[in-house]
Amino acid sequence: MTTLEIRDLHVSVDTPEGDKPILKGVDLTIGSNQTHAIMGPNGSGKSTLAYSLAGHPKYRVTSGSVLLDGQDLLAMTVDERARAGLFLAMQYPVEVPGVTEANFLRTAKTAVSGQAPPLRAWIKEVAAAMEALRFDPEFQERSVNEGFSGGEKKRNEILQMELLKPKIAILDETDSGLDVDALRVVAEGVNRAQAATGAGVMLITHYTRILDYITPDFVHVFVAGRVAEEGGPDLAARLEAEGYDRFLSAD
């Protein structure tokens, strides 16, 4: 049983005009096997939350705490956080020319699990996961994300989630830019990974569309850098009908 506890988190970003506060006191607790949808309008700080949890150097935590199973996540380097069990599926996955997908996956798996995976079992596991996500096997020999379509990049993030088996997975707008078929493939991958590992999932999205395929246990509405309202799956249905205007006018 894993718990990610975010307490009163304040985060700023450096801009040419100076320090700009983005997150203004986020409280959130995510446990194993739970799915939390984080919804909200553009610019509300959803992606900032995702990247500051993963440790991107652009974001500076000014106060608050984040504990992963009682360990201080904010004191860890980016790679230590991943090895502690955190995973971020990025909205814009980065191209790494010259590093093959196969080499990347094996290197990451070795780093996360602390030892090289047994070769034959690993090859089978990768092949099965790629097939389930509709990847041609030749992708293993291609450079990471280089020349991938938008949908292929998103599927590649979920492939990594399935293979690295994190305790907590943050999915940052994994649904954006996907057509309905790709969305279903990606959502099935998330559900499969969660069923296999019991991961806690933080699903960041602007639209309710993906929630037709991944059922959240909790819905949090994010406005102006903090959680403005929380509820069950029914809250998503209300947002679908009403939009975010109610929260924005109150801001």
């Binding site: 150097p57 380097t77 980016v78 790679d79 991943a82 990025m90 990347f104 290197t107 996360v112």
Partner: peptide, 16 residues
Amino acid sequence: FYLQSRGIPEELARSL
């Protein structure tokens, strides 16, 4: 950042 976010230590990521 991308490589490190997959658990790969900084020196190894640079070397890759």
